[in-house]
Computed example of a mutant assay.
Amino acid sequence: MSRTPAPTAAAAPDPAQARARLRATLIGGLAVALWSALALLTVLSGQVPPFQLTAMCLAIGGAAGAALSALRGGDPLAALRQRPAALALGIGGIFGYHFFYFTALRNAPAAEAGLIAYLWPLLIVLFSGLLPGERLRAAHLAGAATALAGAALIISQGGTLRFAPEHAAGFAAAGACALIWSGYSVLSRVAGHVPTDAVTGFCLAGAALSALCHLALERTVWPQDAVQWAATVGLGLGPLGLAFHAWDVGVKRGDIQLLGVAAYAAPLASTLALAAAGLAELTPRLLLAAALIAGGAALAAMGSRRR
């Protein structure tokens, strides 16, 4: 009589892969930390128009990336030599997000437009379920929704949100923001063969396109003093420079669902940074928002641990 073979035990997780995934997730979290300084540095940069500021900062970030590549013995121009699909994804993500974000703010109230644009972390969590090797769990969805509620408290500033029909064009542009950045983040996972150094080229191309938008739509205003120049350089080196490189590493090799939920900490940290600088007021609403965002991140982390 033949015997039925005993079931084999499931393969144990590879500790090296787990450590690499955690390291990439932490690097992606660095991007969220850098984006937390975006509001404060933007305020300190003065009255520079948005497209001009974006062009300047992306140029600084791209130049810094090229310089680091050269110091490592690499070819800085290699960042620009990518396949058309990779260029379209990277330039479309970095420049496209900023273009539609500023378009939204020109055509809709800032609070409502900002909240719609900041649906991108939730969309990242949703879209990640379509990626090979990823599994979307209920805890991820619950965490993203909870964190979104916390972000809404901050973005709305405690007021009543009113989505009036006359601002439909601005709301549509804000929706495009959310789709573009979430799509860029998730598709970057699929384009994992594209090196992170390519982000340097995306930044430089985005700077050129932003400069064209500035020349067509805005009046040039330069930073007026050392503080404003320092803030502009800080924006270019951090939130609009290193942050994009760190995010690329995180979404390609880290826990993309957890990063999506963690991104909702950025508006909270931005408000806290403004309060620390005396430019915003700490309120009980902020404490509630902090609890919601932290709780959402904890739920998402529970979902990721079940892997």
Rank of each mutant, 00 (worst) to 15 (best):
T54W: 06
L235S: 03
L77G: 02
H98C: 05
A298M: 13
G114S: 05
G201M: 09
L126H: 04
L258D: 01
F202M: 06
A108S: 04
A31Q: 11
L282M: 12
G150T: 05
L26G: 00
E281V: 14
R81I: 09
A86V: 08
A298E: 04
F127H: 05
Q17H: 13
V261M: 07
G296N: 05
F95L: 14
H140F: 05
T54G: 04
G96M: 13
H140G: 02
L136S: 02
V261G: 00
P223W: 14
G192A: 14
Q52C: 01
A172W: 13
S156L: 12
R81T: 03
G303R: 07
A300T: 01
S182G: 01
F100I: 09
L71R: 14
S182H: 08
L148Q: 03
A37I: 04
A10W: 10
S2W: 13
L71F: 07
L292T: 02
T54Q: 08
A226D: 06
R137F: 03
L153F: 07
I154G: 00
V227M: 15
A78W: 09
A39K: 04
L286F: 07
G62N: 06
V190S: 09
S156F: 11
A85H: 11
G241A: 09
H98N: 15
L272R: 06
G74H: 07
G234M: 15
A31H: 08
L38G: 00
W181L: 14
R253M: 11
Q228W: 09
L87A: 10
A108W: 12
R137S: 03
G62H: 09
F163R: 11
D225W: 14
A139P: 00
T283V: 05
A168V: 10
A33Q: 04
D14F: 11
F99K: 03
G96H: 11
V221I: 15
W229N: 12
G183C: 08
A230W: 09
T160F: 12
G65E: 05
D225F: 13
A230I: 07
Q47A: 13
L58R: 00
A164D: 12
G303P: 00
V199C: 06
G238Y: 11
A277N: 06
W35V: 03
V190D: 02
Y118V: 08
A290T: 01
W35N: 02
R135A: 13
L136C: 03
V194G: 00
A265R: 13
L105I: 05
I293Q: 03
A290S: 08
L89P: 01
A6G: 00
H214Q: 10
G73N: 09
L148S: 01
S45E: 05
P165W: 15
A16L: 14
A280D: 13
I256K: 10
I60M: 07
A66L: 09
A273T: 01
T200D: 00
L40A: 04
D248I: 05
T220V: 13
R19S: 10
P267G: 03
L136D: 01
G295W: 13
A11C: 01
A64M: 10
L161W: 10
L299P: 00
G62F: 12
R307A: 14
G28C: 08
A113N: 02
G133E: 07
